[in-house]
Nucleic acid binder design. Structure first.
Lengths: 362, 362
DNA sequence: GAAGTGATCGTAAACGTTTACGGTGATGAG
DNA sequence: CTCATCACCGTAAACGTTTACGATCACTTC
């Protein structure tokens, strides 16, 4: 019962009991010959403890392998040293990349992360996720909300702890911080690249307009065109899938109206598009330049290797964390969005000198 | 000091205070006119409470928005309703897919998951991850250990709660359950498909031998060949990267010894390989059949669409969870590995009727 | 009508911390 | 010598639950 709490090794008689009761602050105190109050003080770097005692307690902690019981701490301080992440369930490149980076940064900052994914009817599931996280006692929450429905669910939700949202192009509200990569800039970069190559007829294979990413990337394309005094080219809105891109690519070749250049909203979209072209004798990049977005693994080994835009998820995660812990500590952090970079490969090339009326087909 | 606990905003008079102190079991008891003991009983579906009271308490809980304080529960029961996941940091397809599926299943079973990723020198980082998870109070831990170094770190680690490892082809030990998809079968499927197509010279572009997946997939290839009485073909071991695959593909065409068929250890590997071939006039599948492994998004829109093998991460996660909660509750669950499936597309085709001595080149 | 029997409920203690406060002894000032 | 001061340390209470146990009350049953 109230035994000394030997962590492991030989205790009374029996040989070696592997998994013993975890040592508590009291066990440490007993061994070190002080009171538990003193131990608590050294644990929290509080003053009022002599260097000698502190040293001794630290040693004992080391020796018997004491580790703080987080539940007890959380109970009394009503705040835990972990942060919550809610994400949409999608396995799409952006969200997953952000998630991984977030966990990494958090761990390095000494926070554990517990992640919950919200499912399709977001109205309820988001609030539920927030509640669960609150129950667990997280100090703050980051929600990765690439879909606009999800973002509005967050806006409408209530939560006692700071909530930050990573959502490209969504606006902040009093109680929800927003942060994201500057994807519109990425889209401009891509489009401008095409413009610089001499193309004037630049189409866009957009992602889903249910996604911020889809909206913002389209906006960037439009803006770049407008700034260059070029007409808006063909634009179709899809669902990010290679399949959809393939099919609209097919329609393009069948209609005989192949643009000089196409900015695809994602690498997967570009993939489907390129297949449609290649299978029908339309050459990339000779007949049509294509640039993607994401720089997914392997995009440098597509046929042809894809010109695309890369986001820096690590920087994004770092910045988001900074903002969140800032909010948690009541401090304001100024956030400058991180910038994506264009990576030029082989799927885009200079326009034929004289403007070929249209692309060759068949 | 000991005020009612209004967090902020107008406290004394003010209209509506958004974020109040969370109601406790005592608040519920007071409103319902019972003792906290009774509330605890209905919370835990314990007997000894009349239907009427239970109903009433439930109603009050609903009304005032009471939610259990998990820290308190964890403190007294020394067990929380959450499970820990440790993964390697890699963003590779398998681990990430498994991770997402795991979170999903856990949530549906009412567990929160907190994930920690372990980093390169696994010896320490794995133990640290396990400890942190233990601190948090998880009831069990699943570690996704695709790399053999990581797996041995797990074997050597100590942990008070049940640990289960997802590692293809790793063996179980007394204190570490192991579970995985039957990837060797997947590799056999892929190879057998090539054999059925009439190929006799079947090479393998293996993954890293530091990974269980790499080892097991190679083993499957060897076994299928042996069973068919076919000689071992060419085999190179790489690092999963398209780049490496591309370069060894180049060496193959330069050496002029292109096998009839190649089983690539992953879709990304296949991608690099195919690019090397296609850029040098070696046609896939006419000159050489290629099959991959993973069925990553977009592999159905490669050029050509890739024949590959797909794993069922959901089934894997489901089964793993079953095993883990079984272990947590001291119950034994028999685990039959889930099986991957072959998905045939366009990158593989029947061998030329008479055995062409070698592949055409240039 | 007394005692036994269930069903229903209340109470105390414990879980491992943190926090606020009180106490000790040594030291210096007067 | 006395008293205040300071550095250091111990103690009690609290956080919100669960668990074990004891109490109450209405019925049976004889």
């Amino acid at each position: 019962m109230a035994d000394a709490g030997v962590p492991h090794g030989t205790n009374g008689r029996g040989p070696d009991v592997a998994l013993r009761r975890k040592p508590t602050i009291n066990d440490v105190a007993k061994v070190a010959g002080v009171s538990f109050g003193t131990v608590s003080r050294v644990l929290n770097d509080a003053p009022d403890v002599s260097a000698a005692t502190r040293q001794r307690v630290l040693q004992v902690i080391q020796d018997i392998g004491y580790r703080r019981n987080r539940a007890a701490t959380a109970l009394v301080t009503s705040r835990s040293t972990s942060i919550g992440i809610v994400t949409d369930g999608s396995p799409r490149f952006g969200p997953v990349g952000t998630l991984m980076a977030l966990e990494n940064i958090a761990r390095k900052k000494g926070y554990a992360t517990t992640v919950i994914s919200a499912e399709k009817p977001y109205a309820d599931s988001v609030q539920a996720a927030l509640d669960t996280l609150d129950d667990i006692g997280v100090g703050g929450i980051i929600v990765i909300a690439p879909v606009v429905d999800m973002a509005s669910a967050v806006w409408n939700a209530t939560c006692r702890v700071p909530v930050e949202m990573i959502a490209a192009g969504a606006s902040s509200t009093p109680n929800v911080f927003t942060y994201s990569e500057n994807q519109e800039l990425g889209a401009r970069l891509a489009t401008q690249h095409l413009i610089d190559l001499g193309h004037t007829d630049i189409a866009h294979l957009a992602g889903s307009m249910d996604w911020f990413d889809g909206r913002v990337r389209k906006r960037g394309w439009e803006a770049a065109l407008r700034d260059a005094g070029l007409p808006q080219g063909f634009c179709a809105e899809g669902d990010w899938s290679p399949r959809w891109a393939y099919e609209t690519g097919l329609q393009l070749v069948q209609g005989g109206k192949i643009p000089q250049a196409i900015f695809a909203a994602s690498d997967h979209t570009a993939l489907g598009l390129i297949r449609a072209f290649t299978e029908n004798g339309v050459r990339v990049p000779e007949d049509v330049s294509v640039v993607g977005f994401d720089d997914i693994e392997g995009s440098d080994y597509f046929l042809p290797p894809l010109t695309t835009v890369r986001q820096d998820f690590t920087a994004l995660a770092l910045m988001s964390m900074e903002v969140l812990v800032g909010a948690m500590e009541g401090r304001e952090v100024d956030r400058t969005p991180t910038a994506p970079t264009l990576v030029v490969r082989n799927s885009s090339m200079r326009a034929a000198s004289t403007r070929a009326t249209s692309a060759k087909r068949r």
